[in-house]
Design a protein around this nucleic acid. Structure first.
Lengths: 113, 113
DNA sequence: ATAACATGCAACCCAAAGGTTGCACAATGG
DNA sequence: CCATTGTGCAACCTTTGGGTTGCATGTTAT
């Protein structure tokens, strides 16, 4: 299918998203945000080994690639998950797998002829 | 579903996999390997702006997280894609999305009562 | 044997990442 | 009004990452 290979060609543009996912702290933050509620920076920093400022940097990185969204309520900054971006990332990976499956299928057909 | 949350708790262990995916060159290598054939280091380095040694390092990183597998044939080192690892990574991301959907569903049910 | 080819290994460089401390600033709640 | 709470911002430090060059080592083909 053409849709696969074109999706695959766009893949390299998503490197920053995977890079954002490639950190334990940030994955853990996404997990907490996946619980559904909104969390402030201070709340997200509670119980973690790092400083509030460090957590803030991580949240900024997640926000930059739209894995997370921030809204202001008074003096606090509330964060929530943006699941569409996660889905998009997952589909990018599936695209490579599909490309691989297709290639194997073509090879198999070729050999059988 | 319990299976989701337990899968989610294992997520932080996969940070190295996403970190490996978080680089344009490595994503591009995966794409090439997704074509189905086996490629040597030299072949994979051809046409790319970086040195063969740089490409080799990237391949090592991909191999360390099992996104790629290497077999020796004579003097050359042939690499091939390991699609199971890609699938696993994709499913990890889906797990967070599902956790989110579940949370929203519970919230909705709670409000309706 | 020996020239050519595919790799491995190590030292080194520079920029980016993750983290900290310190302090200023805005919003809230008596 | 003032102490408190939630953030923002900047400087700084150390480790990791991506990349290079240079040279040694194994493998073919002729």
């Amino acid at each position: 299918m053409l849709a696969n290979s074109s999706a695959a060609k766009q893949l390299t543009k998503k490197a920053p998203v995977f890079a954002a996912l490639g950190d334990e702290t940030r994955l853990s933050l996404l997990l907490q945000l996946g619980e559904g509620s909104l969390y402030s920076i201070t709340q997200l920093a509670e119980g973690r080994p790092q400083t509030r400022q460090a957590i803030r940097k991580h949240l900024q990185i997640l926000e930059d690639v739209a894995l997370v969204r921030a809204v202001r309520r008074g003096r606090e900054h509330l964060f929530q998950l943006q699941p569409e971006s996660l889905e998009a990332a997952a589909q990018s990976l599936e695209a490579i797998s599909l490309q691989w499956e297709d290639a194997l299928q073509r090879l198999k057909t070729f050999v059988e002829e």
